[in-house]
Amino acid sequence: MDINEFVATNEVVIRMGFFFGVLGLMALWEYVAPRRTLTVSKTVRWANNLGLVFFNSFLLRVIFPAAAVGVAAFAGAQGWGIFNYYEIPFWVAVVVSVVAMDFIIYLQHVMVHAVPALWRLHRMHHADLDFDVTTGARFHPLEIILSMLIKFATIVVLGPPVIAVVIFEIALNATAMFNHSNVRMPLGLDRVLRWFVVTPDMHRVHHSVEDDEANSNFGFSLPWWDRLLGTYHDQPRAGHEGMTIGIHKYRTTRQVSWLPGMLLLPFIGKISGYTINRRQWGDDNEG
């Protein structure tokens, strides 16, 4: 059994092991060294945020039983994609594939902020009134489905090795939980780390209620795209302890922290001009 076959066969076990391992580690770190005082009951938020995670996982398995790894294996068998057309060293293909897929995730993230109809889906993620490890996995089911379809298209075009897809999925989930965590780390360490990975202090800026701060720091794993493409924002104006997390118009616990309200959030209100172009401080945030 080669490495691609082994990884494809054990993909669910590998991913679940990393998910629960990183979740437990970051939850412990949040308990020992929290960055901010939470404003909503952790019991309520965790029960509903993690309930959403399990619902999304079930939904994806029903709609897309093969998942991204299955699409990668199928593309390889059919000879589809750039890395199946050309002879490229295996580990070069793995590294380039992981970096390329991360860039696509960055572009997707910009897109769901730039297109008002897609922002309606994504705003459920931003509406969380606190910012901790469970926020990193809190996405509307329709956005999860959209993300999976974009991932499938990327895999068909790239033709990445199966192991590259698994590494990418594990890294994306792990870094999303890491960089959404309510953890305190030495400022000097944060300054160094954010050249190589998106840190909690870097990504927390993106969850500010202020338009220009929320429309910045789109990276999930790699921080380079924000720096290269002009969407990097170093620190929140109000400081990490003083900044307000969430969206201006959605501030009630029942609406943004309970699962029924979370699922209904994209369908509330009219579509207005919330776009990526509104990056000025002080605009009235449509949410």
Rank of each mutant, 00 (worst) to 15 (best):
M1I: 13
M1L: 13
D2R: 13
N4W: 00
A8G: 06
E11S: 08
V13P: 00
M16S: 10
F20P: 00
L23A: 06
L23Y: 08
L25D: 02
M26T: 12
L28T: 08
W29M: 05
P34A: 10
R35L: 14
T37S: 13
L38Q: 08
T43G: 10
T43C: 03
V44D: 03
R45M: 05
G51P: 02
G51W: 12
G51K: 15
L52H: 11
L52A: 04
S57Q: 09
L59Q: 09
L60I: 12
I63G: 02
F64N: 04
A67K: 12
A67C: 04
A68T: 07
V69Q: 07
G70W: 11
A75G: 03
A77W: 13
I82A: 09
I82W: 15
N84Y: 13
Y86S: 07
Y86W: 14
Y86L: 14
E87R: 11
I88C: 03
P89K: 10
P89N: 07
F90L: 04
W91A: 01
V96N: 01
V99C: 04
V99R: 04
M101K: 02
M101C: 03
F103K: 14
I104A: 11
Y106T: 06
Y106F: 15
L107V: 08
H109K: 11
V110F: 14
V110C: 06
V110K: 08
M111Y: 13
M111E: 08
H113I: 02
P116K: 15
P116V: 13
L118W: 14
L118K: 13
W119V: 03
W119P: 01
W119K: 03
R120E: 04
H122R: 14
H126P: 00
H126C: 01
F131K: 02
V133L: 07
T135D: 06
A137H: 13
H140N: 05
K151T: 08
A153T: 09
I155M: 10
V156C: 03
V157P: 02
V162W: 08
I163K: 05
V165E: 06
V166S: 06
I167H: 05
I167N: 02
I170M: 11
I170Q: 09
A171C: 13
L172Q: 13
F178A: 03
F178N: 06
N182S: 08
V183Q: 01
V183A: 01
M185R: 14
G188E: 06
G188W: 15
R191Y: 11
W195M: 06
V197M: 14
P200A: 05
M202G: 00
R204G: 00
H207P: 01
D211E: 12
A214W: 11
S216V: 10
S216M: 11
N217P: 00
F218H: 04
G219M: 13
F220R: 14
L222R: 06
R227V: 06
R227F: 09
L228I: 15
L228R: 12
G230F: 11
H233F: 01
D234G: 01
H240I: 06
E241Y: 02
E241A: 15
G242V: 02
M243D: 00
M243W: 00
I245W: 07
I247P: 00
H248E: 12
Y250G: 01
T253K: 08
R254H: 10
Q255P: 00
L259K: 12
L259D: 02
M262L: 07
L264N: 04
L264V: 11
I271N: 01
I271V: 05
T275S: 10
G282N: 05
